[in-house]
């Protein structure tokens, strides 16, 4: 069984090596949004910041090209060469010198803040913050993938509930990778269940009998209860159903009980004894 399917912690799954690629892929977008929103929190904005913000909008709008090549269908034949050459010579998206100066001033006034660069280069992104440890698919939704956030949460909760159900079954000893009980183990389980039922309500035992108290503390009844619950069962021969039992050495028969939870031996362990006679 894949070990990841046993993990019920979505955070743990997210942090697993398998998902680190997702984390690194989507991290820049989220971090940028998060930190930009933090950065533009103007409640404690300084005068420098206010000045910069105002100027920024104006300068940016002024320096932006009026027409994009695709939008100017008319006059393209006459002007395309000059526009193209101008784009080659002068980048219309480049910030003005005034903008750069104000930004430097603003940056120097924020020494303790980690200012994100405006570049789109992922390699320059800051280290992830604690608020970023959210499942990566969720981040994809938050970045406008078009899926409703409520339906996404529903899917996540269903997934977690399924994982919890699988874990509970495993703890109850009813499901393991190789613990499909064979006929002998099922027969033992049925017998144990019958014994537990018989001893829990023996019709002939009077209510004030000491037998009831003894049954409550009986180790044998406790073992039968564990077997009926599937927590303890017979140890299979080498765990391999394809092996012919008649071909096995006498030392590897169903000679022990074991726990289906941690596979430890329950009760007295078996020791093989040679079939030898004193001459």
């Amino acid at each position: 069984m894949d070990s990841s399917s046993c993990s019920t912690n979505p955070v743990g799954q997210f942090l697993s090596p398998k998902n680190n690629t997702l984390l690194s892929t989507h991290r820049p977008i989220v971090s940028r949004k998060t930190q930009v929103s933090d950065h533009y929190n103007t409640n404690d904005a300084s005068p420098h910041e206010t000045t910069f913000m105002n100027r920024n909008n104006q300068d940016y709008s002024v320096n932006r090209p009026h027409l994009l090549p695709a939008q100017s269908q008319q006059g393209i034949a006459e002007d395309w060469a000059s526009q193209f050459s101008s784009m080659q010579i002068k980048d219309p998206l480049e910030f003005s010198q005034e903008y750069k100066r104000l930004y430097s001033s603003y940056e120097s006034s924020q020494p303790q803040r980690q200012v994100p660069p405006m570049s789109m280069n992922v390699a320059h992104q800051p280290l992830p913050q604690p608020s970023m440890f959210v499942p990566s698919p969720l981040r994809q939704q938050r970045n406008g993938d078009g899926m409703d956030i409520d339906s996404y949460f529903d899917l996540q909760f269903q997934s977690v509930e399924k994982e919890l159900e699988i874990e509970n079954n495993a703890n109850a000893g009813t499901a393991r990778n190789d613990n499909v009980l064979d006929e002998e183990q099922l027969q033992l389980q049925k017998t144990a269940r019958d014994i537990v039922e018989s001893c829990s309500t023996p019709s002939s035992i009077s209510s004030n009998s000491s037998v009831n108290a003894k049954f409550a503390e009986s180790k044998f009844i406790g073992l039968m209860r564990k077997i009926s619950d599937g927590v303890v069962t017979l140890k299979k021969i080498n765990g391999d159903k394809n092996v012919d039992q008649s071909q096995q050495a006498p030392s590897v028969g169903n000679n022990e009980f074991y726990s289906t939870v941690d596979e430890s031996v329950v009760g007295t362990p078996f020791y093989p004894v040679d079939d030898t006679v004193h001459m």
Partner: peptide, 9 residues
């Protein structure tokens, strides 16, 4: 018998 005579030595 070990294990209440169910399995073992």
């Amino acid at each position: 018998a070990s294990n209440y005579g169910l399995v073992g030595n």
